[in-house]
């Protein structure tokens, strides 16, 4: 069974249609890449999955549980929104690290707040906090940031900040990790270190959705690729097949434009 099923998601901003009947599914442990030009709706799709936008139509099902259905009454949609969000992790284009916290605090903050809701929090406060900190350190270590734990975001390079952001998203162990153009705000020489980390996650079979402009990377790392244009999925399938031998004329045009820079 697919871990994620997205059915007929549509989204309008005023009279502009940003997404139109977008449907796809994702297998556990696989990586999905979404490509397409700016304004094609890629980011809005990720924002819908993370409940930062409310789709006007369609449904989102994770592990067989319907998290969102536009036909549900509004109250039903809002219910347990926080828990629903935790199925997804999100890495933003502009990192959005919390500037007043160190790298480690950025990673552990949310987990610490969630732990406070546990019934045994008061009795085992010390052990729980130690566990959370240990977990945070492990994640930063995994990102190659062992010597940057106590640095504040402004003391880190863009690539380092984005790796902290990835650790922060991983800390809550989401079912599906979403990347919204994770390297678009980085200087070219810094994209490599971030892509390397994402590649490592793919090798560990982390379920991911990656919106990206790095075509070679998408072709290489993902198990499935979606090309979007004007709010619709034009083509989806095996990444090598879509990029090397696109079936649709619009995909071909996009890839040609892209290759010409």
């Amino acid at each position: 069974m697919a871990i994620l099923e997205v059915n007929d998601i549509s989204k309008n901003f005023g009279s502009t249609t940003v997404l139109h009947k977008v449907s796809f599914s994702l297998e556990e442990g696989s990586a999905l890449a979404i490509i397409g030009s700016s304004g094609s709706g890629k980011t809005t799709l990720l924002r819908c999955l993370n409940f930062l936008e409310r789709p006007d139509n369609g449904s989102i099902v994770v592990r067989g549980e319907t998290l969102f259905d536009a036909s549900m009454p509004f109250k039903e949609q809002e219910k347990g929104l926080r828990t629903k969000r935790l199925h997804f992790g999100m890495v933003f284009q502009s990192f959005n690290l919390f500037p007043q916290y160190t790298a480690l605090e950025n990673v552990t903050l949310a987990e610490g707040l969630l732990a406070k809701e546990r019934e045994d929090y008061k009795q085992n406060k010390k052990t729980i906090c130690e566990q959370i900190e240990k977990h945070g350190r492990e994640l930063l270590d995994q990102m190659g940031l062992a010597d940057r734990m106590t640095h504040y975001p402004h003391q880190l390079s863009g690539g380092q900040q984005q790796r902290v952001a990835i650790a922060r998203a991983l800390a809550l162990k989401p079912d599906i990790l979403c990347f919204d153009e994770p390297t678009s705000a980085l200087d070219p020489e810094l994209t490599g270190e971030v892509l390397k980390v994402i590649r490592g996650l793919a090798e560990q079979r982390t379920t991911m959705i990656i919106v990206t402009h790095e075509m070679a990377f998408a072709r290489d790392v993902s198990d499935k690729l979606i090309f979007m244009d004007d709010g619709v999925i034009v083509e989806q399938g095996d990444p090598k097949q879509v990029i090397d031998h696109p079936r649709e004329e619009r995909t071909r045009q996009f890839l040609t434009r892209y290759a010409q820079g």
Binding site: F51, L97, F98
Partner: peptide, 27 residues
């Protein structure tokens, strides 16, 4: 305070008041 700060808190499952007191307030 950039909207991205609030959104980062939201996707991390924080409540509105947690976002205000732990993220927005000091900034």
């Amino acid at each position: 305070v950039p909207a991205g700060q609030r959104e980062a808190g939201q996707v991390l499952g924080m409540t509105k008041s947690q976002i205000f007191f732990k993220v927005t307030l000091l900034q």
